[in-house]
Amino acid sequence: MQIPYNEKLRPDTGLYNAKLGIWLFLASEIMLFGGLFSAYVLLRSSNADFMMHQHYLNVPLATLNTIILITSSVTMVMAWVSLKLNDLKKYKLYMLLTLLCSVGFLIVKFFEYSAKFEHHLYPSTDNFLGTYFTLTGLHGLHIIGGMVVMIYLVGPGVKMWETNKERFTNRVEVIGLYWHFVDLVWIFLFPALYLL
């Protein structure tokens, strides 16, 4: 059965279905991370020693991760632009670069976590580290989720380009929006946990 406005824009809203869908999803994600940040603010403001363990966090590694994520956002948007320019080869290249960046991010994260565990710093050590592990862990899960979709879109999903170019481009735009949001969350997580 054909659902209308999967690739064409509905005239009165100017949107295709998935775009409205992803923005609603992102709205709920904003509320999810809003709840987490709100908890962080409340715990921090009610406890003078909250930031006691902050100096254990590795700022250079986190800076590197920030740069990696920003780069991946740019390659993601370039992947979408390449599709708009009808260049599937470049799309694949940029998409693989994005995937590479996200793998890099997770590897850096892995080293960060294992360094903490080596120093016997666990989520149970205190609430700051608990918040750190919960928030970055949840963010990491979002990265992994995005990677799964990206692997599909450079792998088996790319077949759709032959049959339905518009819809495929829309799909890439939608995963792009999600990916930029994950980047955006990190932009706030980074100063909130590591710097301030």
Partner: peptide, 14 residues
């Protein structure tokens, strides 16, 4: 549902 459920999800994770 879209806007109210996520804070509970955050709480459930905590």
């Amino acid at each position: 549902l879209v806007l109210a459920f996520p804070p509970l999800e955050a709480a459930a994770v905590f």
